[in-house]
Design a protein around this nucleic acid. Structure first.
Lengths: 188, 188
DNA sequence: GAAAAGATTTACCGATCTGTTCATCTTGGC
DNA sequence: GCCAAGATGAACAGATCGGTAAATCTTTTC
């Protein structure tokens, strides 16, 4: 299997898991929808869990690339990027394919502390936190790590509520909160 | 089946669904762990989905009762209750049985907009929002509904991150953010 | 063009899924 | 003590689960 085919398989499996859930998506369906026979899939991934982990790696890469780039496009200065985060989220929420955060859902279905899927989901959130903390530092804001943690909490809460309510409003609500927190960390 | 037995069945099923997930928990396991035969369960609940909905109703009642009472116990004034919320969450996070928000997980596994499980999960969040908005109004805070929406976002984000990281820290992080938002809505 | 390597189809494995059938057993009311 | 109602275990449907075996078909390589 070529690298392209393999990536394409992971990409399509990602869509299925993201849209339908992990337990709810069987490997027969994955084979049917990817056009790759189940035998071939199991040649390249020893278990369903390994395939899930591969989809999460791809998602992590794609999502962070998209989000960080979009934040920078919307508002280059580091301080403004922390607010543009919520505009980017708003764009995401309004997409018809939006179904919440894949890592939250993965962690919810495989929630044991040491389960590789949960570990990988947590790693994704840690990388987001790092990025926000770096931006807060570059913007010379007070207590950059504490602020970054708060921004991350606002982001996750907005995603959860947007997915559940099928509404984009939480992006604006969270942005207003973030504006005040950033202003306080900047002004004083 | 007596009302007590029925409630006990729902309570034990709730624990199983909450700890293991919905798709991952089979009805055979529910029968085994509740001590109620599968035949009897299906006499009282036509489908697994109906049993899940019953567990969510019980959870909604128990959780809101506990949370609202605890918030009031910790800090009677309405304005302080909105901050005590996060202390109550901290207590919840530190319990060994804590596994995140059952409604977020239910919504993640049954995420179709019109699915009864998702509808019921959303209704739970709406009731929380109402309560927070009432408290904000009673405390005479600016834009009480907007503040309530922000508090709710902080709460959901803190729960998600606490569950994923197996740490109670998000409760304190969210509280610090809430303190500032409440102060701004109070002072100005 | 032949040999080797990889992908495919098809069928299968045993386990588990939701939900049902049925014959037996327990229980409460009179 | 008797009858009816309800609960039970056990077996069973039919489908699907994750995962595999073996034979056939394609593709690459030399």
């Amino acid at each position: 299997m070529s690298q392209n085919k393999r990536t394409e398989l992971i990409r399509k499996a990602l869509d299925l898991f993201y849209q339908n859930g992990f337990h709810a998506t069987g490997m027969d369906l994955v084979a049917e929808r990817t056009g790759v026979s189940k035998t071939s899939i199991y040649k390249h991934f020893r278990t369903k869990e390994e395939l899930i982990l591969a989809t999460l790696r791809l998602r992590d890469e794609n999502f962070r690339n998209w989000l960080f780039r979009r934040m920078q496009e919307l508002a280059p200065p580091p301080e403004d990027q922390l607010l543009a985060l919520f505009d980017a989220l708003g764009e995401w929420f309004s997409q018809s394919t939006f179904r919440g955060c894949m890592f939250i859902k993965a962690s919810a279905e495989y929630q044991d502390r040491d389960h590789p899927i949960n570990v990988q989901a947590m790693e994704h959130k840690r990388l987001l936190l790092e990025h926000f903390a770096n931006l807060a530092e570059q913007a010379d804001l007070d207590e950059p790590r504490a602020l970054a943690a708060q921004i991350l909490i606002l982001k996750e809460g907005a995603i959860v509520l947007a997915a559940m309510s099928h509404s984009g409003a939480p992006a604006q609500d969270a942005k207003r909160a973030a504006e005040r927190l950033v202003a306080l960390a900047s002004g004083s």
